[in-house]
Design a binder for these strands. Structure first.
Length: 155
DNA sequence: GCCAACGTTGGC
DNA sequence: GCCAACGTTGGC
């Protein structure tokens, strides 16, 4: 059964354009250093699951398009590299702490669906994304909410 | 195992 | 740049 997800990225760091331009339109989703987010990737994501690509820390923040899970989880080797953006000396090749999946570009929306707009729809109120203080960078999206967004808000 | 200090996220 | 919310760390 296909599941649905939302993954956040700062476009100044890695945008949906970057994913679109990547080889095979596919890229590792590296840099996640949060256990809950890691567990979603490691235990619950399946090949072909659909992902809302969310641009954070920009104007405006919001959902910009769709990607899909393109691999199973495997160790995030950037954690081993002291020169990387998010090194973690406690993660080693023999005992990796952080995992990632590959994601593949599916589509970019004609325009971003801003966070402000998502907040206006009571149908979406149960989304973890809209919970106050939420900081998860990888989170599940209910099928109901997914369909609502795709049918009512895209375009 | 508690909890204060600290760091990070991310909207504003 | 500010700050609220939250996760992590480490002393005890």
């Amino acid at each position: 059964m296909t599941r649905y997800w939302l993954m956040k990225s700062e476009p100044s760091c890695f945008s949906i354009d970057d994913l679109h331009n990547a080889p095979n339109q596919t890229s590792p989703w590296d840099g996640v250093r949060n256990y809950q987010a890691r567990n979603f990737m490691q235990k619950d994501m399946k090949l072909g699951d659909k992902i809302f690509f969310y641009h954070s820390n920009c104007k405006p923040p919001g959902i910009i398009g769709i990607a899909e899970v393109a691999s199973g989880a495997y160790p995030d080797h950037t954690a081993f590299d002291p020169e990387s953006d998010h090194p973690d000396p406690k993660s080693t090749p023999d005992n990796p702490r952080w995992f990632m999946v590959d994601v593949r570009y599916v589509e970019q929306f004609p325009k971003i669906i801003p966070l402000d707009e998502l907040k206006l729809h009571t149908e979406l109120a149960s989304m973890p994304l809209l919970r106050k203080g939420n900081r998860l960078s990888v989170m599940p999206v209910g099928e109901t909410e997914w369909q609502y967004i795709v049918k009512e808000l895209v375009g």
